[in-house]
Nucleic acid binder design. Structure first.
Lengths: 209, 209
DNA sequence: CACTTAATGTGACATTTGTTACAGACGCTC
DNA sequence: GAGCGTCTGTAACAAATGTCACATTAAGTG
């Protein structure tokens, strides 16, 4: 069995028999940073479990504007994919690789079966839902209750937390896209954060202090 | 069996045996418009199924600011309650009666059991999750991609849709609270909508045209 | 009807965010 | 180091939203 998969399954406290099923039926997928894993147009019938690396979930409107929702870290799975697949619905979000990532792709056709059969899988799925709900509500909080400067700083802190590095390799333009604002605004506010000694700026790189 | 419950259970296409269990184990609860059904501090172990009337789900931040997320109509249930109860977590939202409502309160302790036992209940629960995810994403869209005038109009249309009436009995102040803005802003924008012949205004009452 | 209270209207101004235009800085390649 | 493309900084202005003050209006009550 793939080593990282073994580790993730153990941490998830899944039933051993179920772990074997998942390991048997799934397949490994490696994705490069920046590549799209799930998009509104894709109709993949697999759900990704993150073994290593970092995914990010974005919401996209019909005009191509987008906004960052949350990260998916090692051991986590995309709860929204589960219901989409079960319901055969169009996905209303986009999942991208924020860093190079290793995924375990599990075909959907066994999900209902496992939910019925394994208490540990029910817990796994409900955990995933709960965590994602929390993340979505958190995203709503940021957007509704915070001004752009706080939202930006929160974004930087989240990114630091998720990547485990205080160095962020992004351009102002990229950050602006994730917050659905403009590059000039981001530059302005980052300059402010720099003056407050909360960050340090370099080309293509921001350090959180 | 309660008549409205009977109807809702039938529409949900639940297994007859399960319907009987739900009808047996639950209890009827009537709530007055404006009253709080679930709040972050409540630790109720029941989930509500809306038999009649209209509930609304709000997000509240620590400073007491709040924002409207979505309505729960007849036949719908609060998916977030399910996971909260299963996980024993603190609720991160508030559910209020938008109109007088009749609820069927189902104790949580049977949920896991039902999920294991009934395929139709799994479908019911996953449907609920999917619908709620969609509603949350929809709420995010409004807040991220729309300006306040569009957001306000969308809110009015949603309310019209959910209540089934083109007349909305709310003050500008109340609307402002649900959109997390100020009364003056709402008055200004409503006046605009009136000039565009999209609404007609009276004291405590707005008519959608 | 006169009075009271809550709801709404509106002007004036502050703050935040968005937009445009352009200048300067950095890193890369030849 | 000259040339090039991208990234960042910044001024100037526009638009959206928030805030304060106060006027006006509508509905209910005695």
């Amino acid at each position: 069995m793939h080593e990282a998969l073994q580790k993730v399954l153990n941490n998830s406290q899944l039933d051993p028999a179920l772990s074997i099923e998942i390991a048997t039926i799934g397949r490994l997928k490696k994705v490069k940073a920046g590549s799209v894993v799930i998009s509104p147009v894709s109709d993949s019938m697999e759900i990704p479990i993150v073994l290593d690396g970092l995914l990010k979930v974005m919401r996209e409107d019909t005009n191509g504007n987008e906004v960052f929702l949350y990260f998916l870290e090692g051991g986590e799975t995309c709860a929204m994919s589960i219901t989409c697949c079960i319901e055969g619905r169009k996905k209303a979000f986009k999942v991208m690789a924020e860093e190079d990532a290793v995924l375990w792709m599990v075909p959907m056709n066994q999900i209902d079966n496992w939910v019925a059969k394994y208490q540990s899988f029910r817990k796994f799925v409900f955990d995933a839902y709960q965590t994602r709900f929390d993340e979505l509500l958190n995203a709503i909080d940021s957007v509704v209750f915070l001004k752009m400067d706080q939202r930006l700083y929160k974004y930087l802190l989240d990114k630091k937390q998720a990547s485990g590095s205080y160095v962020i390799h992004k351009t102002h333009e990229q950050i602006a896209n994730e917050l659905n604002t403009s590059r000039v605004v981001v530059s302005r506010l980052l300059k402010q954060l720099e003056h407050e000694d909360k960050i340090e700026q370099h080309r293509n790189r921001i350090e959180i202090l």
